[in-house]
Amino acid sequence: MKAQDLKKNNELESPFAFPNEDSAPSEGDLWFLPAPIEEGADTLPPGPRAEQPLAQNSAAWAQAEAGQAAHLARVAGRFGALDDRLQRGPNGWRHRLALMEVAELSWYVGPRISPDRLALWLALRLSAAQDTPQTLARMGWAVRRLTAGAGPLEDLATFLDRRDPEDAVTAGETFAGRAQAWRKAMAAGADLHPITQACMGFHLWRLAGLGPKGDSVEAAVTAVRIAASEGRGALFTPLMLGGADALRATGAPPVRLTRWLDSMEQAVLSAMRHLEELEAWEMRAEQTLKRTSGRTPPALRDVFVEWPLVSAPMAQTLTGSSRAAVQRNLNRMEAVGLIREVTGQGRFRMWTARV
């Protein structure tokens, strides 16, 4: 075969050779090639969306509330039962629930203060080596705001104990200006249920610039106080006892409200179960200690109702009794099974009620 014939055969057998223009593929068949770039096309990734004005968020939250009407009514009913129980119970119940709520909140925001360390700080101003005074002071502020004082909607600056510096001139840069914008947004949602209004206020907190990113202590404390604004016995609505899922700032208002209601319902149920067990323990302690003389046994019983964990110095300070009387009654209560020691140490021991 001639060299010229071989050359022709190779050209015809090549998969990339087209003997004539009619057999050449069209541009539509070349699917693997990139599409031509249009002139003036925006190929940049999308940037951050502009946030809606705070006052315009109330309509979206009203629509979310309408979609969760049945769930909201169930949660409100459960909180009403808790509010009635707290109204008829001793003040120590509110303080105990506040300590538990703040301890759970601390696990979400980062410091992770256990109830015993928080109790030592509040009662004796004692702190562990790993605890900073600033962190304990913030958690102590949260406990105080959940147990006493006016609500945040009356005077937000007093509730947060925050003031503007003297060199702050621009209204947008001052705390008073940001707080006014937040209160205006909350006033736009005044027709919402307090639980829905609390959820809205929590998620508008960062948009109003009232707190740094990642710090939700003030926002969470403010929200649970707003949720219980119509309560008579409860100053706040438990939330963190049901998990930290409610504080996730993702999703549309209906999704956020659903998570809020789920966590609040679980928290209220947990608080109710805890109070039932605590009330049964209190009755058992009263029957067991009625034959003992002195004022220390009933005072110690009230201390264990109010505080989840108690040390001997704490009991001495809170009851006003002598160290010997406190230690003697602690040993007696432990012997009859009313309390138990939780540290397992010979020194710096802590006791809790055996509920």
Rank of each mutant, 00 (worst) to 15 (best):
A24D: 12
A24G: 13
A24T: 15
P25I: 08
S26N: 12
S26L: 10
S26V: 10
S26Q: 11
S26A: 14
E27C: 09
G28V: 13
G28I: 13
G28Y: 10
D29E: 15
D29K: 09
D29F: 10
L30C: 08
L30M: 13
W31I: 14
F32C: 12
F32W: 12
F32T: 15
L33E: 14
L33T: 08
L33R: 06
P34A: 01
P34F: 00
A35R: 14
A35D: 14
P36D: 08
P36H: 07
P36R: 10
I37C: 05
I37T: 04
E38V: 07
E39L: 13
E39M: 08
E39N: 03
E39A: 13
G40M: 01
G40Y: 02
G40D: 04
A41R: 00
D42A: 13
T43P: 11
T43A: 10
L44S: 08
L44G: 09
P46E: 02
P46A: 10
G47D: 04
G47L: 03
P48K: 04
R49T: 13
R49W: 07
A50H: 10
E51F: 07
E51P: 07
E51C: 11
E51Q: 11
E51L: 14
E51A: 13
Q52A: 10
P53C: 00
P53H: 00
L54S: 04
L54F: 02
A55E: 05
A55R: 01
A55H: 02
Q56G: 05
N57H: 14
N57D: 03
N57Y: 06
N57I: 05
A59Y: 02
A59W: 03
A60Y: 00
Q63S: 12
Q63K: 13
A64V: 01
E65A: 03
E65S: 02
E65W: 00
E65M: 01
A66L: 07
A66G: 10
G67P: 12
G67S: 11
Q68W: 03
Q68M: 11
A69H: 05
A70K: 06
H71F: 04
H71S: 10
L72D: 04
L72M: 05
A73Q: 12
R74A: 12
R74N: 10
R74P: 10
G77E: 06
F79D: 05
F79S: 11
F79K: 11
F79Q: 07
F79P: 10
A81M: 10
L82G: 01
L82S: 06
D83P: 09
D83G: 11
D84G: 15
D84E: 15
R85C: 15
L86Q: 04
Q87M: 15
Q87V: 15
Q87N: 15
